[in-house]
Each structure stands twice: as C-alpha cells, then as structure tokens.
Design a protein around this nucleic acid. Structure first.
Lengths: 109, 109
DNA sequence: CGGGAATATGAACTTCGCGGTATATACTCC
DNA sequence: GGAGTATATACCGCGAAGTTCATATTCCCG
C-alpha cells in the first residue's frame, strides 16, 4: 500500500499520533485506544510494511516506534501547496483590511 | 468522504498538483492528464464536495481552482510529527559525523 | 513441563470506491 | 431549432481493505 492510503485510515492516524509522543507496546496501544488487539496488530503490520513504524522485541512484547521517512514524503508532497494558501490568507487579510471601518484613517501596525 | 481519503487517490493528487499551478477547465485537465473525461468529472465532484476545489461557470466550460482549507487541515495534522523527524535527521547527522573516517582528525566545515 | 500472557495470522463476510459504458443536461452558433 | 461541444450523472461489476472470530506462535514463570 502507498503512503497516502496508509494514513487515510483513521485508526492508523490515531496510532501514529499516539506513537508521536513516545514508543509503545501493542498492549498499551490496545488499551489507550480501546480497540481490539487483533485490529491493532493488523494496522501495525500495515504501518510496519510501509515503513511508518518499526518494532523492537522485548521478551514477549513488541515495542513500536515511529519512523520519519514516509511522513516526510507526505510533507514533501504538500510543500508546493503551501505557497498557495499563504498567498490566499494574505489576500484575505488585505481584503479584510480594506473592509475594515474606513472611518478611522490612521492604520494600525 | 474525508480529507485524507480524498488525497489517497493518485489521480486526484495529480489533479490537485495540476491546479496548484493555475486554474483549469475540465477539458484542459482531461487532455493534460490523458484521462477519460468522465473520470475527471467524477474526481472533480469528489474534490468539490470535500472543498478542495471550486468551480466557476464560463459559458459551457467549468473552470476549477484550488481552495486551501482541506490541505491546510492535512498540514495541521502533520505538524506534530515535524518535531520528530527533524530530531531524527539531526541524530542521523551526528551519527554520520562520528562514522566519518577517523583517519583525518581536523574536521571540515 | 504446563499454563497463561502478549502478539500475530488466517478465513469469512461486508462495505466502499474506482473504472467503464451509456446517457442526460447545458450552452453556442448558424 | 438543430448540430456540435463541454460537462455531469446513473448504473454496474469488481477488487481492495477493514472488522470480527478463531487459532497459532512465542515467551515467561512457578
């Protein structure tokens, strides 16, 4: 599966967000997110195969942690659009500036 | 459908990227991306209903242009992870620094 | 060694979205 | 008003992915 499809799944995004704060075992994820263990394991498998996470074995636990690369890709795809929406917000601000009650002539800032 | 699911579709991402440079009519998209008109129209409908694009009617053409909000949401979701991978890249760089052939003692830079 | 905890895997079922084909709607120009 | 162009919609079939239930595997410990 492909990076964008991976993060299209809400449960997987939740798992990723959880792991963003720190690494966690399957059981911890299971309990904190109140989702069935089998489901957690499968999502983790998908995430692992796509390189979003990696697992360290610790006795009978598997501790999962984030890996940065795939999300960096997503971020890279978004980059070209940022120009666009900052421009938009600027335009909106200028617009609102012109809207702003014309009684007061001395502009703030 | 939800923002992340929308951009999970490769053709839709391509359309969005195309519109990032400038607005375009359905026919222009159809030709530049070599994809069937009916398919383009459907994807545009999905994108429109999710707020990624909006259409202006111009005679018998519809000219589509980007709207920033949904992609900004995606960007916002990504934000917390940026901390994470900049930290990682830094660690990697330090690691590579230590790896770097120890014969030469005077560091470059 | 046997039982229990932690995690993974497999199978069956269901839902959903995409692609394709056919058709409808809307506008323009003669 | 009829032909042609531009775009949208409806219906269908198929495959992919998610959920659940059952079971397998691995490890710990008394």
């Amino acid at each position: 599966m492909e990076s964008f499809a991976i993060i299209a799944e809400p449960n997987r995004r939740t798992i990723l967000s959880l792991l963003a704060s720190s690494e966690r075992s399957v059981g911890e994820i299971e309990r904190q997110l109140r989702m069935p263990q089998t489901s957690v394991s499968k999502h983790l498998r998908v995430l692992r195969e796509a390189g979003f996470v990696e697992a360290r074995v610790e006795a009978q636990r598997r501790v999962y942690r984030l890996r940065p690369e795939p999300l960096m890709e997503v971020d890279a795809w978004l980059a070209p659009f940022r120009r666009f929406w900052t421009a938009h917000v600027d335009a909106l601000e200028r617009h609102l500036d012109r809207m702003e009650q014309p009684s007061r002539k001395g502009k703030k800032r």
